[in-house]
Amino acid sequence: MAPAEFDHAIALRYPRRSLKRAERAFRCSPFRLELLGDMRSQSISIRQVCGQAGLKSHYSRRAMAELQAENAMMWLIAVGLLRREVDGQGLTDSFRLTPLGRQVFEQLSALSPAQYRPTLVDHLYNAWCRWVRLPSWAGF
C-alpha cells in the first residue's frame, strides 16, 4: 500500500473574524511586512528583530528592547500568526509563520503600505483585545 501523500494545495480555511483579528494585530504591531516575508522561509531570532538589527533588516519600525519585541511577538502568537521554533532541546528564541500567518502575509503584501496602515480605531480595538483576552467560548 502506497503512503498517503499530502496535498500542499489544500488551503486551511479560517473564520473571517480570525483573519481580520490577525491582520489587525500585525498592522498595529511595531513590525514591518518584511519580517513576515522572511519568516515564510526561515525562522527569525528575537535578536534579529530588536535593537538596531531590527532597523537594519527592515523588520521593525523603531528600535525596540528585547522585552518589547518579545511581548509583541507573543501577541502575534496569541492571535495565531506566529509560532515558536522548537529544536531538540525545547523552545528556542526564534519564530516562524503559521498557515494563518502566511494567508495574512499574502493579503497584506497585495496592498500598498498606505493601505494597510492601521487607523486609530484599529489601535484601540487591538489594545482592547490584548487587554481583555476573552475566552473563545464567550462568543466574541
Rank of each mutant, 00 (worst) to 15 (best):
R117Q: 15
Q115W: 00
L67G: 05
Q68P: 00
L76H: 02
F105H: 11
V86E: 10
G139E: 03
R13C: 15
R133Q: 14
S41N: 13
Q42I: 13
V132A: 13
R62M: 12
D38R: 15
Q89H: 13
I46Y: 01
V121Y: 09
R84F: 02
R16G: 11
P15F: 06
Q103S: 02
T98A: 03
Q68R: 05
P135L: 01
W128Q: 09
I44W: 05
R84W: 02
L67S: 13
L124M: 12
L100I: 07
L111E: 11
A69H: 00
Q103I: 01
A2Q: 09
I10K: 09
Y125F: 09
A25S: 15
P135R: 04
P3G: 04
L33N: 11
P30R: 05
E85N: 10
T119D: 01
V79K: 03
D38A: 10
N71D: 12
S112A: 11
C28G: 05
T92Q: 08
Y14N: 04
Q52K: 14
C28I: 05
F95R: 00
R32Q: 10
L19V: 15
E106P: 01
A138F: 10
K20R: 15
N71K: 15
W137D: 04
L97M: 06
G80H: 01
Q52N: 13
S136Y: 07
R24H: 02
E70I: 02
R47C: 10
C28K: 05
G88V: 04
W137G: 01
E23F: 00
M74W: 07
C50Y: 08
G90N: 04
S109T: 13
A78W: 09
M39S: 02
A11T: 11
E66N: 06
G90F: 04
L67K: 13
R32M: 07
R96S: 08
P113I: 03
P3M: 06
Y14D: 04
L134C: 04
Y59K: 02
E70N: 05
S41M: 09
